[in-house]
Every structure is written in C-alpha cells, then in structure tokens.
C-alpha cells in the first residue's frame, strides 16, 4: 500500500490517502469511531464484518471516477467477500464532494458507482445482486471547509441490503 502512495504525484491525493488511512481520527460520528475500534469482534459474514474487516468504501480523486490502486485493493477484498456470502444483494452509492455544481455532481457520483459496479462484476460478482445510485453532493460524511473533508466525501460506498 505504501508503494501506492509513492506513485501518486498529486499532493492532493497524498492528503486523501492520509485521510483514508486515519479515518477513525477524522470520523465525526462517535459510533463510527467505536465500531472501528471493535473491528475484530464482528461475526464473519455479518454486515459489520463487511464494513469493518473488508471496507465498504473507496475514494476518488477530484472530478475523477478512476479506481486507484488502493481502491482496487479494497474492491478485490469486497469481491471475495461478496462471492463468499452470495445471500447479500447490495447497492453501490456514488458520492461527490461539495466543490462542484449540483447536476455535474449527480452525474459524477453515478459514474463512480458505475466504475465500482463494473469492477465487482469483472471479479465475478453477479450483476443481478447489484444496483447503483448517485447522491451527488447531497450526503457528505465529513463536514468542514477543506480537503480533509472533501477527500472523504468523494467516495463510493457498497451498502449491503438488510437481510437478503
């Protein structure tokens, strides 16, 4: 993963990666912090297992829907897990940060969700289990006026349906 860091030229992205690696510190939601601390306690095959031990989200660069090396590593783990637990159907949510206009961000979020969906499909996850939705900039997870928040909001989240 560190070699991945070195290959990114953009300082912006380095910030993003730092934010991603230290998400517990950035999380504004105390529950989120707590769940990350209890990582190993999750039952294998549970939703918590997926969120905590696999990672339910990947992050994107500004105005981009390209999967980074880090994203691909996470999605590889997601695909393995989703193949192992075929009872789950799920939604891939695409999101954008607040630094774009509304309509464009809706389309950009959709593009990001599609990139994740296509990758999971290419790794053997059945298409009928997946749906995508874009929230544009409507559902940020981190709220502040700098890159530390925006980089967390440019994301795609794989959301398992309650009990499939």
């Amino acid at each position: 993963m560190l070699s991945g860091v070195l290959s990114f030229r953009s300082t912006r992205f380095a910030c993003l990666l730092v934010a991603a690696l230290s998400i517990a510190a950035c999380a504004r939601n105390p529950e989120e912090t707590a769940s990350l601390a209890n990582a190993s306690a999750a039952t294998p095959g549970s939703q918590q297992d997926f969120v905590v031990n696999v990672g339910d989200r990947v992050w994107f660069q500004v105005d981009s829907a390209e999967l980074t090396q880090q994203s691909i590593a996470t999605l590889e783990k997601q695909a393995q897990w989703l193949r192992a637990y075929p009872q789950y159907s799920f939604t891939v949510e695409g999101h954008a940060d607040e630094r774009g206009t509304r309509e464009y961000n809706i389309a950009l979020g959709a593009r990001r969700a599609q990139a994740v969906r296509d990758y999971l499909a290419s790794r053997g996850v059945q298409a009928h289990r997946m749906r995508t939705i874009s929230y544009g900039k409507e559902r940020p997870v981190a709220v502040c006026n700098d890159i530390s928040c925006w980089s967390q909001n440019r994301r795609s989240v794989t959301v398992l349906n309650a009990s499939s």
């Binding site: 829907a65 309509e103 809706i106 389309a107 959709a110 593009r111 599609q114 990139a115 939705i133 874009s134």
Partner: peptide, 25 residues
Amino acid sequence: GMTFAPRFSHDGQRVILSLQQGGNS
C-alpha cells in the same frame, strides 16, 4: 435510468433533461 437536471422549453411544452446510463449522461 436516473433522470435529472430538468428544465422547460420557453413555450412550456417540452422538458429537457439528462438521462444517466451507466457512467454516461
């Protein structure tokens, strides 16, 4: 697919919008 960014024509008889299909709008 998802439709968004609607707007009326000036005579009010048409709605122009975007359709999202895959990664493409």
